[in-house]
Design a protein around this nucleic acid. Structure first.
Lengths: 218, 218
DNA sequence: GGTCCGATGTGGACACTGTGAACATAGTAC
DNA sequence: GTACTATGTTCACAGTGTCCACATCGGACC
């Protein structure tokens, strides 16, 4: 990995620090993160980080954005895999539903497979000091959330969801999927084997998708 | 409040420490919790806590259990309030549904109204050192979760849910409600006004309840 | 009634943490 | 070759949880 020889000046410290955060978060969990552990891993003095980040928090957020991108990538992969199983002869609504399932299952499977990165990805929000209310984070929609919005809009286009049902539909979906990921990761299900979590996660996704339609109670 | 005069021995330190944790968590948030802050508030040396708790973590968990009880109490109140609106002439299924809604709305409203206590209540789980898998925590079901299980069983008894639909139904419900509380508390909705959160929360609860029935997609 | 003893709280110390200020070095531009 | 700027280092400080030795109280025992 060290293509550049060891010098007094590291030369590529900023990305190296972010990588170190990702590595520590991956196999130690977010709670083992510390400025000193990160710089120690890179082989540099703790304060060197302050040339590239205002704060330890800022470093953490920069790495969290990377983790968020990986989460989004996993969701896209899962979506593609499910869409590939849909026969092109089937109605468009089926494909739209498969896409929405992929978004949810991708989120959940990433959380199960990479709990450290998943926890890291959540550190974007938090006590952002100043804060006038904003519907999303910093007027910029995080990529994973954008995937959900697009999938829901696709449902409407495909006729799988009425415009009325579409309203605010992102919140039930996001709540259920994120909530399950949290329960499976930090909550009462945290020690369950991956197969169990995967099966329960699929059940959660199917139930919330079913609930998007506003039918009468029987 | 000091019925016992100030002595060298505090005399009632254990509950006092737990109260202090609750107070700090309530208006400072869980991230401001520290052994030293807690003992400082009580007016005692940091090490005094070690006569009553193995660990700072143990103190924290003890307070978390109290917070969990208060959460459960809020859920029971909300459930009673909703049940009171149901006419006794209405079918039993309506009452069962109202009860389930109360469980979910109670959870969400508590999280919105007391975010510090809510975050504290979640600290029960976590890296419990050793850990063979257990479906619930320490072979003991937390009171808030038990309320959900009872409400779902009540749905079956009232005929509002088939036994097949009842299977694993606790996870979609818990995921959606807990997930929304997390989003509203620590996530992208954290700065929204309480009315907005309350309305969205109600929407989430209604959607997940609708999804419990396994009808066909239209 | 005096004496011991266990329960409870204190003080000091240690290894950590994030962060600020002052200093040192390397590479670049003139 | 000499300045300058970017980038790391070193030292220092306040804060954290936790361990160890000590102080002090209340109650039990003879």
């Amino acid at each position: 990995m060290a293509t550049t020889e060891e010098t007094y000046h590291h030369g590529d410290l900023r990305p190296a620090l972010i990588d170190a955060v990702l590595e520590i978060a991956r196999d130690g969990g977010v709670e083992h993160l510390s400025l000193r552990a990160v710089t120690r891993l890179v082989g540099v003095a703790p304060n060197a980080a302050y040339r590239h980040f205002d704060d330890f928090r800022a470093l953490t957020v920069a790495a969290a954005l990377v983790a968020q991108d990986r989460l989004a990538a996993a969701m896209r992969e899962q979506t593609s895999a499910l869409l590939a199983q849909v026969d092109s002869a089937q109605p468009a609504a089926d494909a739209a539903i498969a896409r929405l399932r992929g978004v949810g299952l991708g989120y959940i499977h990433f959380a199960i497979a990479e709990p450290g990165w998943f926890a890291l990805a959540l550190l974007t929000f938090d006590p952002n000091s100043s804060g006038e209310p904003s519907v999303t984070v910093d007027a910029q929609v995080p990529p994973p959330f954008q995937l959900l919005l697009d999938a829901l809009d696709g449902m409407v286009e495909a006729g799988a969801l009425s415009p009325t049902e579409r309203e605010h539909a992102e919140w039930p979906c996001w709540s259920a999927v994120h909530g399950f990921a949290d329960i499976a990761t930090r909550g009462p299900l945290q020690r369950q084997p991956a197969e169990v979590l995967s099966a329960l996660g699929a059940h959660v996704v199917d139930r919330i998708i079913a609930g998007l339609h506003q039918h009468q109670h029987r």
